[in-house]
Design a binder for these strands. Structure first.
Length: 878
RNA sequence: GGGCGACUAGCUCAGCUGGUUAGAGCAUAUGCUUUACACGCAUAGGGUCUGCGGUUCGAAUCCGUAGUCGCCCACCA
């Protein structure tokens, strides 16, 4: 006998273990089942499971489990990302507590420490995903710094280098002075501030009476100025072009140049050019061959290229002093408030300075073209589709991707330098040495580039590197391109776009066919979860409190197209309540001895009630399957919920009680077998969503050796009987109407009443007789009477053929009932009126489809379809 | 500045290519210790579908426009 309710804490661990012991999550590349593959968005090795992971992985798990039941050979490829900066920060912090810096250890020792850390503390998140019930093929877990994946990284780097798609360049990059590394554009976040714009004058060389006024938001960078730019046809400044002006304070002469960058309508029309510290100015500098004066050191402090009194200061410290000095010189004019955004590092949160350094770049603008094409031509598609716009936008404005990081943890750049600086890019040091020897004609000593690659470089290869590339593995052959990528919109540019580019370059095939983008998890009020607000939800705590299935279901119940997911105690409690409902429904089956009958053929069902539930079940199962296939998890769960709670429990289980409490053994046997069939089908259908509950009930209710995970998706199409289904629905409407009237006129539940039914067709009268027991139980009706004579003229006219023709005899307040009916009639009259108009219009439309064609700008074919549809609706109406 | 999306019951949302009387869950009210379930059952109240204009026999749905709120990108001398 089942307990009072489901106790997830007691069973989850054991069930997980059983699944894993039986290797039910493993893929079978050798099997001839069709392949279905999802690669996990690899969580950071430093990561801890948060609610967003829970959503992301629950979705993937539903797909994996569903596809397995549908007969696919599923590979859900798990793994982790080495997360260069994040991991290095964690380990440095840990060492810092012992008073050790990474420089004390040296590179090699430090990297060793990181590996030790990974061994001991890293990858917690994978255990947490196990707890969520994720059916990934855990034995195949990959790490972006595995030998295999590292080899893939080096090989692709070399190939891209040789194809000219990776190059080293001295350019302005985003420099993070705290992390001491360059970062990519994507890792920079803009923060709004109210800044100021300062206006001051530069004196013209040899003619101090003439000046040119500029406006700037960063006066302290004037030491790095190498020109002032004006528009070529700006009358105010035309005469100054080619002359020199003097930088205030240091009196260094710099030229006035004509450049399109200067916009006469903005500021004063004249702009100071600091090529080493501003991306726009850098371009101007290149156009005019200006010197690049770097005034910041690697800690973003002013360096030896500024007057002594400012050296060692941060730009913001120096700014007021510089302004003071300008004022003292009498060159200062005025200041204005100026709203602006300041770049910050997404990890370090310090101000990011553009800084001139040597870095490695990927020529992403070149790679972008194919990656755009495959989305345009549908080889790969975003679901929902509207993400494509953002993707195109981003891809078309792509800058070269800075991939070198001045870190120690990561894939070291496979480039070696000869003493004269010649580069040798090879997969291994040996090959580099050989190449160098060949080049120079004698052996030379080489030193490897100290930098490592951006973490996203290796994750960009994830779709194929995890499957064994560059070897031609059976996995690669069977599972690539993968079926679907499930991810959040926040990493479309970081990851999705780069996977598309890298995969197209290496594999010439898209990495995945579908890209399902889910929403953000928010709190119950729709607020973004954040540490500062304290409204975050720990999924594992919720699993402890309500059970894993409840958490999964609460998330999945809202996961749809372009929709955020709102979670909190209430939503999870509701999910838990649903689980209890299912538990109790199954318990009811058990108490009524409903057991699986292997000889039972649903095609031979006699009772309409049983035909009805099987039909409605079949429909629900189809709908749920279709919803999963289209990533509408909210629809799938909604259908599940309404079928189980509304149809199966509230209607069917109540309706069969009279049969169980009756005395017809044949009816009882058929009903028991039907119940067991419906129960098992439902358990199978909920398995992807609530695997622990499904597995528990599957094994507790029957003695069977097979786990539910090994079963197939229910196939019930053949047993549908729409006529029977409609009859029972009609009856339930009748019962509902009776109940509603009873409630309205306050008839105590225990009172039996007699029912006079008007206007029912002969068919319907038969049904009512046949299901007398049902009606007597559910509607508490004692006897029926069928009457053809009208109560009044009005009622008969309007009510002919309608469900609500149930004047109740005997016990009710006639006046109240009459008032109710009149109200009803008003509604119905309006309805009939509309119907009549629509019927008239049918004739009208049949006569004039051309009118529809012109009005709706449809083709004749479409118009015809539209007319057909109207006929259907109208036929149904009348 | 450019783009995307949303606005339907107190709350959170369905409502797909226009077509039965606009739905659900939660919340609310009333009544139920009915032998699966009070994490439950039954019933009810609650909506000029953001405003305005248009197309149509017919608009929550399509078009235009105004408003409010989100998000993304860019610029910022």
């Amino acid at each position: 006998m089942l307990d009072k309710s489901f106790n997830p804490q007691a069973v989850e661990a054991a069930i997980s273990k059983k699944w894993e012991d039986k290797k039910l999550f493993a893929c079978h590349p050798e099997s001839d089942k069709p392949g279905f593959c999802i690669v996990i968005p690899p969580p950071n090795v430093t990561g801890n499971l948060h609610i967003g992971h829970a959503l992301n992985n629950s979705i993937q798990d539903v797909l994996a489990r569903y596809k397995r039941m549908k007969g696919f050979d599923v590979l859900w490829q798990p793994g982790m990302d080495h997360a260069g900066i994040a991991t290095q920060m964690v380990v440095e912090r840990m060492l810092g507590k012992q008073g050790i810096s990474r420089h004390d250890l040296g590179r090699e020792k430090f990297v060793e420490k990181v590996w030790e850390w990974k061994q001991e503390y890293g990858g917690q998140i994978l255990n947490q995903l196990h707890r969520l019930g994720c059916s990934a093929d855990w034995d195949r877990t990959r790490f972006t710094m595995d030998d295999g994946l590292s080899r893939a990284v080096r090989q692709i780097f070399v190939q891209m280098y040789k194809d000219g798609l990776i190059y080293k360049d001295k350019r302005l990059v985003n420099w993070d002075s705290k992390l001491q590394t360059a970062i990519s554009d994507l890792e920079v976040v803009q923060k709004e501030t109210v800044g100021k714009m300062w206006y001051f004058k530069y004196q013209v060389e040899k003619d101090p009476s003439e000046t040119i006024m500029i406006g700037t938001t960063r006066p302290e960078t004037l030491f790095g100025d190498t020109a002032v730019a004006v528009s070529a046809d700006d009358e105010r400044y035309k005469h100054l072009i080619g002359k020199n002006v003097l930088i205030p304070i240091i009196n260094k002469p710099i030229p006035v140049v004509a450049d399109e960058h200067a916009d006469p309508t903005k500021g004063t029309g004249a702009v100071k050019i600091t090529p080493a510290h501003d991306f726009n100015d850098f371009e101007v500098g290149k156009r005019h061959n200006l010197p690049m004066v770097n005034i910041l050191d690697r800690f973003s402090k002013l360096n030896e290229n500024v007057p002594e009194k400012y050296r060692g200061m941060e730009p913001l410290e120096a700014r007021p002093l510089v302004l003071e000095d300008i004022k003292a010189l009498g060159l200062y004019d005025h200041e204005e408030d100026n709203p602006m955004t300041i770049p910050h590092g997404d990890r370090s949160d310090v101000i990011i300075e553009p800084w001139l350094t040597d870095q490695w770049f990927v020529d992403t603008p070149k790679l972008a073209a194919t990656a755009i094409e495959v989305i345009e031509n549908g080889e790969s598609r975003f679901v929902p589709k509207n993400w494509e716009n953002g993707y195109f936008e981003w891809m078309r404005h792509m800058q070269p991707w800075c991939i070198s990081r001045q870190l120690w943890w990561g894939h070291r750049i496979p480039v070696w330098y000869a003493p004269d600086g010649t580069q040798f890019c090879e997969i291994t040091e040996k090959e580099a040495l050989r190449a160098a020897e060949k080049y120079f004609g004698h052996p030379v000593e080489l030193t490897q580039d100290p930098d490592v690659l951006d973490t996203w470089f290796s994750s960009g290869l994830w779709a194929f590197s995890t499957l064994g590339w560059p070897d031609e593995t059976p996995e690669l052959k069977k599972y690539y391109p993968t079926s679907v990528l499930v991810t959040g919109f926040d990493i479309i540019p970081f990851w999705v776009a780069r996977m598309l580019m890298m995969s197209m370059y290496v594999m010439k095939q898209v990495p995945f066919k579908d890209i399902f983008i889910h929403g953000l998890v928010r709190d119950e009020h729709g607020q973004k979860m954040s540490k500062s607000k304290g409204n975050g939800i720990d999924p594992l705590q919720m699993c402890d409190k309500y059970g894993t299935d409840a958490v999964r279901y609460a998330l999945l119940a809202q996961a749809g197209h372009g929709r955020d997911v709102l979670v909190g105690d209430t939503t999870i409690e509701n999910a838990r309540n649903f689980i209890t409902k299912i538990w109790n429904a199954v318990k009811f089956c058990e108490m009524n001895n409903c057991h699986l009958d292997p000889s039972f053929n649903p095609g031979t069902i006699r009772l309409t009630l049983n035909k009805w539930i099987v039909t409605r079940l079949a429909e629900a199962v189809e709908k749920i399957g279709a919803a999963i296939e289209t990533y509408s998890f909210n629809d799938a769960t909604g259908t599940l919920y309404h079928f189980i709670w509304g149809t199966f429990c509230d209607r069917y289980l109540e309706a069969i009680k009279p049969i169980f409490y009756g005395s017809n053994p044949e009816d009882q046997a058929e009903t028991r077998a039907t119940v067991a069939l419906v129960r098992d089908s439902l358990l199978q259908v909920i398995q992807p969503f609530m695997p622990f509950l499904a597995e528990t009930l599957w094994t507790e209710t029957e003695t069977r050796s097979q786990m539910i995970m090994e079963t197939t998706w229910p196939e019930l199409k053949a047993y549908k009987d729409e006529t029977a289904a409609k009859q029972i629905d009609w009856l339930f409407d009748l019962i509902g109407a009776v109940r509603s009237v009873r409630a309205e006129v306050n008839i105590p539940a225990a009172t039996k009443i007699s029912l006079k039914i008007k206007g029912a067709t002969a068919d319907q009268q038969d049904q009512i007789q046949n299901q007398a027991v049902l009606i007597q139980t559910l509607a508490r009706v004692e006897s029926f009477e069928f009457a053809n004579e009208p109560i009044t003229g009005v009622i008969s006219e309007v009510f002919d053929g309608m469900t609500l023709q149930i004047p109740l005899l005997g016990v009710i307040d006639v006046e109240a009932e009459k008032a109710r009916l009149i109200k009803e009639i008003e509604n119905q009259s309006a309805f009939v009126e509309r119907t009549k108009i629509q019927l008239e219009n049918q004739a009208f439309i049949a006569k004039a489809p051309e009118k529809i064609v012109s009005a709706k700008r449809l083709s004749m074919e479409e118009a015809a379809k539209s007319v057909e549809k109207m006929r259907d609706v109208l036929a149904h109406l009348s």
